[in-house]
Amino acid sequence: MTDTTATAPDDTDLDDVPARKPALSRWLVAGAAALVAVVLALSLLAITDNDDGDNKSAAVPTAGSADAGFARDMAVHHQQAVEMAYIVRDRTKNTEVRGLAYDIAQTQANQRGMLLGWLSLWDLPVTSADGYMTWMPMGGMGHQVKDGSLMPGMATNTELGRLGKLSGKQAEVLYLQLMYAHHMGGIDMARACAQQCTVPQEKTLAQGMVDAQQSEMKVMADLLRERGSAPR
């Protein structure tokens, strides 16, 4: 299987685009930063507490666990969200849409780093020979991996190519629709981890993803409505 987890952009400044003015945007950015700090602190504490022989080996998830599967798959899922943010940055000058893209890119790049970091700490591979979503109940509910859409909610290569050719309002609408669907798929995955994962820090991160992305979906629906459109 091709490793698709190593091609995300190295930074997420989006040309230092200003964040959106509404308080919700500022809350999401602050909340994401706080979540990152909490999870990192808890991770370091867990490593220290378990660094004593047998207890450490018992605490490390297996390659086929929900903990490892979620970390691998969500890292890939997040990578595309960051990619879409970079695309729309270059296709519109609208500060609200660019601000939303900035928020999502910053949050998901940070979370992706944590997920890959955990896999490294657990000495587990970042890809699985069994494919995507096998750790989830029903394995993604029949999602067909094709044209770049590796998991539910992910955009296809065709859709990404179209986004890269549109501009202005048309690019904004397509980006918001693609990201809305992307969040729907991501929330399903995060909910599954919150229920199935055994590492407390990862369960906390997953539930934080659910809460933050649900709030962002409300923002996206409002922005689409302002443009005479709706999620699809």
Score class of each variant (00 low, 15 high):
83 E>R: 05
107 T>L: 09
97 V>E: 02
100 L>D: 03
84 M>N: 09
97 V>F: 04
98 R>C: 07
103 D>M: 11
113 G>W: 05
111 Q>P: 12
97 V>R: 01
103 D>F: 06
96 E>V: 11
112 R>A: 06
93 K>D: 01
92 T>G: 06
89 R>F: 15
90 D>L: 13
106 Q>V: 10
113 G>M: 10
86 Y>H: 15
102 Y>E: 02
87 I>T: 13
110 N>L: 14
94 N>C: 05
97 V>Q: 00
110 N>R: 15
86 Y>D: 14
102 Y>W: 11
100 L>C: 01
105 A>G: 09
87 I>W: 10
84 M>W: 04
103 D>I: 08
109 A>E: 12
105 A>W: 04
83 E>F: 10
104 I>Q: 09
110 N>G: 11
110 N>P: 13
106 Q>R: 11
94 N>P: 05
102 Y>L: 12
112 R>Y: 01
99 G>F: 02
98 R>W: 04
83 E>D: 13
87 I>V: 15
109 A>R: 12
104 I>A: 07
89 R>C: 14
91 R>K: 14
105 A>C: 09
84 M>C: 10
90 D>W: 12
103 D>Q: 12
98 R>D: 00
83 E>Q: 12
83 E>K: 06
85 A>L: 11
88 V>R: 00
105 A>M: 09
84 M>D: 09
113 G>Q: 08
104 I>Y: 03
108 Q>D: 05
